[in-house]
Design a protein around this nucleic acid. Structure first.
Length: 229
DNA sequence: CGATCTATGTCTGTTAGCGT
DNA sequence: ACGCTAACAGACATAGATCG
């Protein structure tokens, strides 16, 4: 069996050999094998809400561009790149080491980044070549970063509404779900939690049942919006 | 514990082969 | 030509090992 890194390196090599092709490919959807570039939604993608699932979010080319833009801001090592992306997207996108390190190695191999050994760490710096490539694709980088940030914000709002953000923080700090540090009263958190459970329990329910749930939620939303009037 | 690297599993889309 | 399905391939996450 061919291992992931072999495959990834082979994949990277193909891009290296076909740099001109790659630059043309950036900005369009997958051709030929049909997968890869623009998967998460390139600059020409619309809506941003589609393909909103676990799994690949950026193509390798996109990721390399994003990493270069981070390196342009300041030299980073791999772990910092992961953290920076996670931070920028409110935790929505934190590429795995299996993506980031090979991408950094690729950037080094292609001369777009240089490496300075910093103890047991490798600090990557953008090179002139990398800066040139980045400038050639500046629009795309801005679009990707903008979309990542926007989705991160959206995720944050969704989590807040459904309490997942609180769940996350609560578990991280050893608190119960109902304990959010006093932002909401206990009864409200319990009710929210009950609502979440009820909806989850009806995943896959029939159309009629879903309509019933939707009308209940819509009515609840209407009453909440109306306040105590 | 942070940083890096490696092996393996999973998911998803493509391709090819087959029967109708 | 069309639809179905198994095999295949690409992209990625995750777990774990290693090192300082």
């Amino acid at each position: 069996m061919r291992h992931f890194f072999d495959k990834l390196r082979e994949h990277h090599h193909r891009h290296h050999e076909c740099r001109e092709d790659m630059l043309h490919m950036i900005g369009r959807r997958g051709h030929g094998h049909g997968r890869g570039f623009g998967r998460f939604g390139g600059a020409d993608d619309e809506g941003g809400g589609r393909d909103f699932r676990a799994g690949r979010k950026l193509s390798s080319g996109d990721l390399q561009l994003i990493i270069l833009s981070l390196l342009e801001e300041k030299p980073c090592h791999g772990y910092e790149v992961i953290k920076a992306l996670e931070e920028r997207t409110n935790g929505f996108y934190a590429p795995s080491p299996g993506m980031v390190y090979p991408a950094l190695t690729y950037l080094e191999e292609t001369g777009q980044a240089s490496v300075v050994q910093d103890g047991n760490k490798k600090q990557y710096n953008i090179t002139e070549e990398g800066r040139t490539w980045l400038n050639e694709n500046r629009d795309r980088v801005e679009a990707i970063l903008g979309r990542l940030t926007a989705i991160g914000d959206k995720m944050d709002r969704i989590r807040e509404v459904f309490g997942e953000k609180l769940d996350m923080h609560a578990s991280r700090f050893g608190m119960s779900v109902e304990d959010d540090g006093g932002r909401f009263i206990k009864e409200l958190n319990q009710a929210r939690s009950a609502l979440k459970s009820a909806i989850r329990a009806h995943v896959g329910a029939g159309e009629e049942e879903q309509r019933r749930i939707a009308s209940i939620l819509a009515e609840a939303a209407r009453q909440i919006e109306a306040g105590g009037k």
